[in-house]
Design a protein around this nucleic acid. Sequence first.
DNA 1: TTGAAAGCGCTAACAC
DNA 2: GTGTTAGCGCTTTCAA
Lengths: 346, 346
Amino acid sequence: MTDDSADESDAGRRAPLTGRELAKALGISQSTISRAFSEGATISPKMRAKVLEAARELGYQPNVIARSLTTRRSGIVGIVTANMTNPFYVSILQPLARRLQQMGLQTLLFSVPSGQQIDSQLPLLLQYNVDAIVVMTGTISAEMARRWADAGRLVLPFSYTIPELDLPSVSCDNEAGGRAVAQHLVQMGHKRPAFVGGHPHSATSVARGRGFAQGLEELGVPLFGRLDTGEYTYEGGYAAALELGRTRPDAIFFADDIMALGGMDALRFGLGLSVPQDISVVGFDNIPLAGWPTYELTTFAQPVEPMIEAAVRLLTRRDGEAVTAEHSALLPGTLVQRKSVRARGR
Amino acid sequence: MTDDSADESDAGRRAPLTGRELAKALGISQSTISRAFSEGATISPKMRAKVLEAARELGYQPNVIARSLTTRRSGIVGIVTANMTNPFYVSILQPLARRLQQMGLQTLLFSVPSGQQIDSQLPLLLQYNVDAIVVMTGTISAEMARRWADAGRLVLPFSYTIPELDLPSVSCDNEAGGRAVAQHLVQMGHKRPAFVGGHPHSATSVARGRGFAQGLEELGVPLFGRLDTGEYTYEGGYAAALELGRTRPDAIFFADDIMALGGMDALRFGLGLSVPQDISVVGFDNIPLAGWPTYELTTFAQPVEPMIEAAVRLLTRRDGEAVTAEHSALLPGTLVQRKSVRARGR
DNA sequence: TTGAAAGCGCTAACAC
DNA sequence: GTGTTAGCGCTTTCAA
């Protein structure tokens, strides 16, 4: 490569300052520099102040890559996600990344093709000495999960659970949510409530559906119909509503908002029905779109803030404390009533 | 730390295999292992096959952290973003991350508070030996940009430009887009077209507005009104439309879709106007929402796929080839006509 | 409390 | 082609 800077001082190309260089400049040893930057190291306050001062002045920052080579921790959290077309995940991702940053952790985004097992990709993340992974989607094999746990790494399913594995997880109380929706619909006089689920094997969808069905049963109202779209998308909700709507339920509970919005559009534009006059619609998540005036979707809100805080707490635990399924956070959500549900005459 | 595993074989906690261990197992030198995993290294095909075979069998993978310590490249691309509530950025982020993964690059997500200078955060990224950063938002000082360039790192503004700096960028031809919208609206007989911009100093907003104004001028139609929301949000668009709508333009061009959707809702629900009967609305980006039946928004589509490909091409350049502003990709978009624009009688 | 020295797992000259 | 050797910039014993 031809370098057109003549001078040897070479103001530009300068690599970042190393600890050794800073040490030399201060006439001390490199390990003292290291100690100045380590939390509980044995170093006099005076010396530390001096080092930090000089570091700030000369623009020295420890190289985290080199550090993680010895400590075997990188300060990086991997976030595994598939379906980012779903606004709910986005509304998680951004604040989660920001909170982690505040805690001095970085976020490695890992996107897997929807519905795919994430196992094959994980060794790659392990190579990066990723401290933990937050899994927002997909399944992970028991063996791979154990490999991570054994390496002292946390695998944290977020907003869903993998029932077979002894993993801590952070999620909303989906079953209670489904039940709350059932109670609300019955209370509003609905007689023919239907349910639209996502992927039929996803624990999330199952829990919401079960809570809903049980809630109805407890109140003596039969579940009028049920359909699984296979995936949480606008299009999936649209198609499901088109099919289910023809059977004339008086309310449909969708397992998430994005499907509910697709469903509302299908009912309105595909079937010519009016929401909520002809049929009530309820969603789950409470994404920003749900509050827009065109939709005014009644929905069960996931407690996003507390969920993120719970995740951050688990992710910033010090080593040595094993984190097991017992540390899971199952947080309560709240029903947000808007205008997509209407009282039915009795 | 107390270790409660009695046996010394210690089946669980086993650290990943190192290159040296693999070498010993094969009775060869560690550098041969390294060569087997390096693209253009001088190693016999036979030996390489043998090593890779053994590696697969024993589950060895090179430690990328250690590698990046010597090579000073990490295989990580930082993506700096602020406003992820905007679906457009999301629709970029996911495919971009996935394409980079395919190329063997990882994505470090970096979220900065909206509107903030990103300079302060960049040294942190540099610490991670991030090879390049894709900047989707915010501004960066000339000095910081130079520091990165000097360190052989690419700073790539995506979907926007920082005019003052000699940086390559990938973006849509915003000015041409604005002009195309102007032509379309005039052609459809509009006489009082208005413009709603985002941040008044953002190059993107300025270019779209300028193209629009020039397009109108060329066709002899005066710009009826103009407003800047200060940020690209639904709420911003809503408020702007409320204000601008009262002056009775016959069309509003919003500098992006999310503002346009907010605008449509404001016109409909806030002002009781009907779109497109009373007023036409045009957006920019073509996010998925724009195609939903409630909105059917006519919009200028950014060429997302080509933009991502262009970005990936720049990001995967081999070192040594300096990448300057001349390598910028300014890609043409297309007007997507839906139902939010209606012909006006002459 | 500080310094010296070893090593984390790899790449890259340099020999052979 | 392959082995040897010297680092990359840190953390962490071990002495002093």
